[in-house]
Amino acid sequence: MNKHLLSAADLSRDDAVAILDTAAELSRVTDRAVKKLPTLRGRTVVNLFFEDSTRTRISFEAAAKRLSADVITFSAKGSSVSKGESLKDTALTLEAMGADAVIVRHGASGAPHRLAHSGWIDGVVVNAGDGTHEHPTQALLDAYTLRHHLAGGTGALEGRRVVIVGDVLHSRVARSNVLLLHTLGAEVTLVAPPTLMPVGVDTWPCTVSYDLDEALPGADAVMMLRVQAERMNAAYFPTSNEYSRRYGLDVRRAGLLAHDGIVLHPGPMNRGMEITAEVADGPRSVIVEQVTNGVHVRMAVLYLLLGAAEVDTAVAHEEAGE
């Protein structure tokens, strides 16, 4: 496994399955009275959030705390970050505090990559969403949720068909999901109006469609991406109504899915825009479950990355007798 988790492309199939398997074991800890594990006692995990994202921040905080790490949270609002302190100076501060892992959310694509490769810090860097680039732990929790429902909770996702719908152009979730789901053997179809498809999407490991009704029949899962109504002001689509009619998920469309097909949404949802309330709260929806799974997947990521990073020498220590 790579030292950092910056992109879903950093993960091999074995890496991804190892994370999902570890998360599955860790999920069982949630069922017992003492939910905390001592694994990362004495390690410092910093949540560095240049962009507001309460749900992702809380999810990482919960994950780190359940592993007994010391958690420090830097949020943009009210900190030196909002007073114009540079990424570099913030990083140097964290380094001085001895951060073992830095979880970074930033509005600029590539900021976590920059942090990991600039030499400013030594710790493990986990991308918690950067600009319109990637959000690999979201993809992992989506894969975990898909695997739980579609593959009996083990192995990969060979042959499963997943449709991702919405503002692909501006979506870090879509980028990471296409990469990871492809790595896990799923077949991904992206659906959006052509204006919300990135240039060069034809080179991505997925198929592309402009027609939701054509893409949905028989699919095992559909993932709806948040579409901001402001996009219509930049002429990406004419009106919210037209968007909903052509690309929104309603009960009729959800019924086109395979018999046990599920509906995902990374949140926060725009009810009435990309998804109707009936579908969001309906029997196929696994949206609330995604949140729970997020904590387990992030625990697994922290455990595996910090565990890998701290082995100084690859001494094949004899297992027997211990």
Binding site: S109, D130, G131, H133, E134, R172, V199, G200, T203, W204
Partner: peptide, 13 residues
């Protein structure tokens, strides 16, 4: 530059 790479890197083209 706008192209396949800008789409992958998430940088405005």
């Amino acid at each position: 530059n706008e192209g396949a790479l800008s789409g992958v890197l998430g940088l405005r083209g």
